[in-house]
Design a protein around this nucleic acid. Sequence first.
DNA 1: CAGAATCCTATACGATACTG
DNA 2: CAGTATCGTATAGGATTCTG
Lengths: 121, 121
Amino acid sequence: MQVGTFQRIFPGGYAPAACPSRTVLEHVTSKWGVLILVALVDGTLRWSELRRRVEGVSEKMLAQTLQTLEADGLVLREARPVIPPHVDYSLTSLGADLVKRLLPLLEWIGEHAEGIAGRAQ
Amino acid sequence: MQVGTFQRIFPGGYAPAACPSRTVLEHVTSKWGVLILVALVDGTLRWSELRRRVEGVSEKMLAQTLQTLEADGLVLREARPVIPPHVDYSLTSLGADLVKRLLPLLEWIGEHAEGIAGRAQ
DNA sequence: CAGAATCCTATACGATACTG
DNA sequence: CAGTATCGTATAGGATTCTG
């Protein structure tokens, strides 16, 4: 019997809520998750640089999302004990690997968004 | 001057809330958007098949997400006027194109979810 | 500068019941 | 079978203020 792409990639189907994949998927595809990860594609950024690059993000959501991504091992946070504070954020190798899969998606959306947004109300 | 990946892909930066890309990104990365799109990777599914394949989705969210994706031109809905009703859902060519970019991401998450979920609390 | 803390609101989401 | 309608809640997310 022929096995489809879905079966090949998800032999057990999408697992129910408890599945780790769901959790990670929701972290990554949270409103700001993708945007923050991709913002770090070219290397280290400071908190304030990140805030500027990810337009529209509130301080709360930036902090919260960064903490989640750090806990997931996707983002590295390095704080220098100086005054005023200096904190650098960068992708871990895991995070960089993930972003490689994210970029084609973002590029595609960038190319097609206009046409798509036109349809929807 | 050297132009980074971010600048190359997003010459104007991530536009503010008004940007169509943001809207499309949020549709696609909504809680069920990715799951529904990828569920259709191997071809047409009926409503009930979709509900079974996308485990855990409520009727409300399945209907709502499908409507959004249909309005976006990513999913095609074909209803046959029979009793009992028979409705087929499939990817449009645009949707199929998008799913090509989604699969590597989902595969990656499937491979790494265990390790990532282990870290986070 | 880089957040934490607090307060508040919109809405995403789910459960249930109903219908052509 | 394939939804719609209604209701209720959790929480995602934002605005603001405060601080080492």
